[in-house]
């Protein structure tokens, strides 16, 4: 059960034009930086990207947008990205905005083998247009389908060669639910260890969900909003 690959290039070697990819991360936190760089280098195009955000102009998925590799973004919030805005307004880029909890739960459903979920998010709004509505106990819910992604690309703090993953702080965010949801799941980690070095009780993503793993290099971990207080 050794899932280790040599690096990002090998991990994404068979990503093809037109595929649907999921990317873990929230804002610029917990992004698979190495795989994004490898995808930019590989130059695959016409991608559908499922990611809570679209990065900024020169970091995260913004780097792929700049190379016109993205055909469609499925996200909950896409601010802070001028190139994204330009492509959207010019019609080059298709965008589907969906509620953040719906996004997470559609990933979760895929990982739990459930075809769809029911959520109240978006009832009575334009998000509900064309969707089946069911009433349970007097309240309306939208039926939302599980995602179907060719690749899930996630970032974890630590992982072992069998693919077991542990995330750190709020860099966890969408990573575990996306890790469960890909036909092929690629995990890049800051520290890759041997089996037995991670406490089984502390594993967030069991290795069964992970197909390829490698230790990433040169993490920038950019901060989007640096907010601090002065020492008194």
């Amino acid at each position: 059960m050794n899932k280790v690959v040599s690096g990002a290039d090998e991990a994404i070697r068979d990503v093809e034009d037109g595929m649907t990819l999921m990317f873990g991360g929230f804002g610029l936190c917990g992004l698979p930086e190495n795989c994004i760089a490898a995808l930019v280098k590989k130059g695959v195009k016409q991608l559908t990207c499922i990611s809570n955000n679209a990065g900024v102009d020169d970091f995260g998925i913004g780097l792929m947008l700049k190379q016109r590799q993205v055909k469609k973004m499925i996200s909950s919030y896409v601010g802070e990205n001028a190139e994204f805005e330009r492509q959207l307004l010019s019609g080059e880029l298709e965008v589907e905005l969906i509620p953040q909890g719906t996004l997470a739960t559609r990933c979760m459903a895929a990982g739990y083998g459930m075809p769809a979920i029911f959520t109240p998010a978006g009832v009575g709004t334009e998000v509900a247009i064309g969707k089946e509505i069911r009433n349970f106990n007097g309240k309306d819910y939208l039926m939302e389908m599980a995602f179907d992604a060719d690749f899930a690309i996630v970032k974890a703090w630590k992982g072992d060669t069998m693919g077991n993953l542990i995330y750190k702080s709020t860099a966890r965010n969408f990573n575990p639910v996306m890790a469960m949801a890909g036909k092929i799941t690629v995990a890049e980690v800051e520290e890759l260890v041997e089996p037995g070095e991670l406490d089984p009780d502390h594993i967030h993503t069991p290795g069964i969900y992970v197909h390829r793993i490698f230790q990433g290099v040169n993490y920038e971990k950019r901060i989007e909003q640096r907010t601090v207080r002065k020492k008194e």
Binding site: Q100, A121, G122
Partner: peptide
């Protein structure tokens, strides 16, 4: 820019 988590929050 998107609804982020607002629709989930207000619905529940």
């Amino acid at each position: 820019k998107g609804m982020g988590g607002a629709m989930d929050l207000v619905a529940s």
